[in-house]
Amino acid sequence: MLRAGDFVVLAAGGTLVGALALWAWGGSRGDTAVIRAGGRIVQTATLTHAQRFSVAGPLGTTRIEVEPGRARVAADPSPRQLCVKQGWLTLAGQAALCLPNQVSLEIRGRHPTHDTLGY
């Protein structure tokens, strides 16, 4: 029922699906964490070794943890804790914003990507 060429077509189709998945879902892993307070960059850290930063904002101190390959907002005085609940950020373009305390953590990769999509 299946002829030789059919297997070639199926294999090519499988390769195409795999390549599409890598291209669309892979996302580039970030290598730098950029920490801002009040819109100004206060700290830039490479995601190579564990580091901790404390950033002062209008409400208090935001603690940021950097580990190899990932970074997170560990503690923040904001009432809703949205940036803390985001957890670890790994992909280039991801960002955690602690708005009331005006602190943000952004992951950057080699190529700048969209941080969000609006339409």
Binding site: M1, L2, R3, A4, G5, D6, V8, V9, L10
Partner: peptide, 8 residues
């Protein structure tokens, strides 16, 4: 048709 069937 020798190498490619309906599946292709």
């Amino acid at each position: 048709g020798r190498h490619f069937g309906p599946v292709s």
